[in-house]
Design a binder for these strands. Structure first.
Lengths: 221, 221
DNA sequence: ACGTCTTACGTACGTTGTACGTACCGTGTC
DNA sequence: GACACGGTACGTACAACGTACGTAAGACGT
């Protein structure tokens, strides 16, 4: 049952973890489209079909990638802390993962996590909502709103960043070439739109949401 | 230049619009994975390579799909209306598109819209922010927060719906089988989590965000 | 009538995911 | 030690994919 380590040629055993890890690395280096079973295999120095001993198919591998990123999220929490701080910490953890694995993140956002790993942020958010004094249904709503923002802020940032990267000219100049009748505000705010501070944008929306939550009537406490 | 209509056999001309439309239909009926150039061709009763006279490649076709959904979004607006109402209307328009084209929506969220069509919601959001009395940089921030929520709420809903559909058992029963130590709140709130009203959830978060915006200090007005 | 341009099509190629059969190797049983 | 067995790695093979390329057929300006 236990595998003995080979004495001389340290031929590391193939395992689901190593496969998923290689897939994540490949995605981060060359993008999701570059993720092919053959590429993963050569990355690991094995034959393609060897992978299928550990992963049923490519979809499962992608699910593994999503799970890896989600599972790698550190969710530190101090229940004694103020709930606003805890909420911020939770949502920032999501953002950190998105920062560490930017390209794999789209896989996370696209595919579904069916293991319990995907529920960890939800559990945490519910706990925080409860500690803030919100009851059952309200707690669920709040959890959903928080996670929606975390997801959306990330998606939007990735999207606009990709869009700006695609323009090979100066972004604010590109904005200026739009139809001035249809896009007066975009053109007027071109400099502000071109220069963006993802961190600040993220925190702004987060603060907004939390302050709104703070103003909500509580069931208790 | 102008094409004359064939007299007897009404062989509708192949066009980019028709191709994109067929692609959208195919995606809605059979999912994104079923979208193949060959499938689109047979749907239209033409040869595969004929498509390439109107669409450079599959990526461009997907971009066309995203553009179609975005462009189909009706963005009615009455500048005389209260800005909160206008903001709600804008974000709801996004949601309506997501409701009409649920499966194509993931394409929209994944790919980037590089035509000006993708900027229409941004323009509108900026106009609304301005009418609410927010100045340049703040208007951009608000626009980003609003769009982030619109995106995220949609993604989260699609995600959880897909997850719940994947469970072939009763959802709240599935929740109950989780580790009670790790997921006490999820288990306790299983009924609330299983029964979800997407519309109400969406509106809840939207109200939250708008009320928070309302409380922000203005530069003018 | 003729050259040109546009569009539809068929063939063909490289790449993909993966079903299947086979060879190996460590372990438990006699 | 012999041997059957279960798991793992591998090679071959195939269907489906995106699309490069060459060709033919019609529409139009001249």
């Amino acid at each position: 049952m236990a595998r003995k380590a080979p004495e001389v040629a340290m031929r590391a055993v193939l395992t689901r973890e190593r496969i998923v890890h290689a897939a994540v690395g490949l995605i981060e280096r060359e993008g999701v489209d570059a993720l092919a079973m053959r590429a993963v295999a050569t990355e690991l120095g094995v034959a393609v079909m060897s992978l299928y001993n550990h992963v049923p198919n490519k979809a499962a591998l992608l699910a593994g990638v999503a799970e890896y990123v989600m599972g790698g999220m550190e969710l530190p929490d101090d229940p004694g802390e103020d709930w606003r701080v805890r909420a911020r910490t939770l949502i920032r953890a999501f953002r950190k993962a998105a920062h560490d694995y930017p390209r794999s993140m789209t896989v996370v956002l696209t595919h579904r996590i069916d293991t319990s790993i995907g529920l960890r942020p939800a559990e945490r958010a519910l706990a925080i909502a409860e500690s803030a004094g919100f009851d059952g249904e309200m707690a669920v709503r709040i959890m959903r709103a928080l996670l929606a923002y975390a997801l959306g802020a990330q998606m939007r940032e990735v999207g606009t960043t990709k869009m700006l990267d695609h323009l090979h000219q100066d972004p604010s100049e590109a904005f200026a070439q739009l139809d001035p009748v249809e896009f007066p505000h975009v053109i007027a705010l071109a400099p502000e739109l071109a220069r963006h501070d993802p961190e600040a944008d993220f925190e702004f929306g987060l603060d907004l949401l939390i302050s709104a939550l703070d103003g909500l009537p509580r069931a208790s406490r």
